[in-house]
Design a protein around this nucleic acid. Sequence first.
DNA 1: CCATCTTTGTGCACGCGTTCACAAAGACAT
DNA 2: ATGTCTTTGTGAACGCGTGCACAAAGATGG
Lengths: 254, 254
Amino acid sequence: MATGRTHRPATRSRGIPEATVARLPLYLRALTALSERSVPTVSSEELAAAAGVNSAKLRKDFSYLGSYGTRGVGYDVEYLVYQISRELGLTQDWPVVIVGIGNLGAALANYGGFASRGFRVAALIDADPAMAGKPVAGIPVQHSDDLEKIIQDNGVSIGVIATPAGAAQAVCDRLVAAGVTSILNFAPTVLSVPDGVDVRKVDLSIELQILAFHEQRKAGEEAASSDGGVPAAAARSDSADQGPDGDMPAVMPA
Amino acid sequence: MATGRTHRPATRSRGIPEATVARLPLYLRALTALSERSVPTVSSEELAAAAGVNSAKLRKDFSYLGSYGTRGVGYDVEYLVYQISRELGLTQDWPVVIVGIGNLGAALANYGGFASRGFRVAALIDADPAMAGKPVAGIPVQHSDDLEKIIQDNGVSIGVIATPAGAAQAVCDRLVAAGVTSILNFAPTVLSVPDGVDVRKVDLSIELQILAFHEQRKAGEEAASSDGGVPAAAARSDSADQGPDGDMPAVMPA
DNA sequence: CCATCTTTGTGCACGCGTTCACAAAGACAT
DNA sequence: ATGTCTTTGTGAACGCGTGCACAAAGATGG
């Protein structure tokens, strides 16, 4: 969960709930895996387990898309893959630019998960003139002077910011001015954008800090209980953690 | 289930809402910036603007930690930095291991946001023997054969998984068996962990897919008058074939 | 010491998301 | 056709998070 929206004027009367949208990619991944194994149909129970969610939640999520299941049987895997892909807009090609080709930018450029899901890295952009022309992931880095031209020539509407924090807002402003309307921000800064532009933030250090909080709490409880002995995995069911996706409690196999 | 049933709102209520915990790092960052500019105090309104949240929400969040503000004045920046750091557990040192030193793992190792917040990269681990000994971010990569020993010798309780999806669950199992109780997972897989282990997931491709959904909706609304909404590019020839990003079957024999 | 002004802390209401539980719908066997 | 069995789709209840609005608390000035 990291949507840095500015204001929400409730433009979703007939729309799909945001929480559901955030889970659709999860279902899609599980379904793709089933598809690759040529599994024809899947029940909500099975698919929910694979995606790590509650089956009732999954069924309700799908109900927002329409009635794509067959009672007594389950869901047709291929059909559902198509429907979710279409709903997410993955049946079309999304050219993406990555700005800031440092370690993280390079990692993103090399990340295979993009191309396989309708995203195409249209350009890599960096402010360092020494980087210009140097190929990263097979794509030559271009200088940020040409940012506007690159955006417009490629019809880019999604931009990824992987610059240092200090440069992020300026880059963001230029991207938006050039026509980008969706931004994935890896820089540890709050970006301000005009209405109509979506920003999602991914912050590695924040995720770690949240883990540290729970870790500290676990350590404190353990010391306080003075139980000692076994780490008490099954004894106490606290763990009010839960990320945005909610992970399943599962029994350790071995 | 797995909800904190141990709520005891006495003198020290330990039940901080998850949503609040997730925002504390955000406040901490804004406060740190103020601290570096030697700003002595800040009002909830100012701080909320800097963190990109509602001021009432911020005040309520802080109220869970205690009454650290002064009415008519605001919050003491230094004091608040300390209190939040303590609450998040950042006043202690957290050794972290990163498993999977590919592009992403290397980027994480180089990421400065860790060290500055109490996190210390204790070791880099990779399964490739050719990587062993090679320094990344000044730290020599160690082979995964030594994973258990590394965890135990360094007292590591937080692990970062940046391996391909296919290796993630196995790595996760080994980490947990060795004593890790918090995992930050970058691999596109649902991890099964025993009770008491926290998992947070960061998935780059999911974030992009969510953006694509909104982007499509924006485009559809805009062109709703002329065209029929969906861009009719439904018949993709190579849409659902698996990409090389190594998605593994997330389906397990439940 | 009192009045006024600023800002916090929070009671309350509302809306979203989650979960339960079950009727409806279809497959399948006889 | 009819009954049984499985699984979906969803109405309803519940709990959490958010934001409003205001009283309490303290600073500040006369």
